[in-house]
């Protein structure tokens, strides 16, 4: 009865009202910390990153080679059939250029983030990572990229063991 309603409830306040003490409130900061276990598939994946390699799992029923690897095929709903190394190169599926940090503050050097379809995995099997060694204005869809790894002694078994992906010429792959 939108048109028949004379007024809509809601007492508007401004964010500044809190600062200025015009609106009383109770403040609270949760004191919780988390440790997320990586699980079966991710533990192996991260171990392999430490070795400078990307590993996938595959499913013989649908023939998919899956990155990030999982222990089950969500299409066939059965255990994956095994592990398989894939390349550390890929293609930019989509990308974006972030000018802000997590708290919405401006950052000096924009971050290029991309979904990279990994070579050797099934088509469209991408991972999220950053793009480097290129001006953001030069990035293109379909661009070939290759992982830039941290030196072995600095790797800890994390997705950040890959510093970023950098553009490469097709023939050098």
């Amino acid at each position: 009865m939108s048109e028949k309603i004379k007024s809509y409830p809601g007492f508007r306040i401004r964010t500044a009202d809190f600062r200025e003490g015009k609106v009383p409130y109770v403040a609270y900061r949760p004191k919780v910390r988390y440790a997320w276990s990586a699980g079966i598939a991710m533990s192996r994946f991260l171990e392999e990153l430490k070795n400078g390699r990307i590993i996938a799992t595959y499913c013989n029923s649908c023939g998919r080679i899956m990155v990030p690897p999982r222990v089950f095929c969500e299409e066939c709903f059965k255990p994956a059939d095994g592990w398989k190394h894939v390349k550390d190169t890929g293609t930019i599926n989509t990308y974006s250029v972030s000018f802000i940090a997590g708290d919405a503050s401006r950052i000096k050097e924009p971050i290029i983030v991309a979904v990279i379809d990994i070579d050797g995995a099934s088509p469209g099997m991408g991972i999220l990572h950053k793009i480097g060694e290129i001006d953001w204005k030069e990035v293109k869809f379909g661009m070939k990229v290759k992982a830039v790894w941290k030196p072995p002694e600095e790797r800890v078994g994390s997705i950040t063991d890959i510093k970023y992906f950098k553009p490469v010429k097709e023939e050098t792959l």
Binding site: I13, F18, V23, P24, Y25, V26, A27, Y28, R29, P30, V32, R33, Y34, A35, W36, S37, A38, M42, S43, L46, E47, G102, G157, S158
Partner: peptide, 18 residues
């Protein structure tokens, strides 16, 4: 020691109006 995990927290504060 190879058990992988990631540490984190939710960086949130709350302000409850009365």
């Amino acid at each position: 020691r190879n058990m992988k995990h990631w540490l984190g927290h939710m960086e949130t504060d709350y302000r409850y109006t009365l």
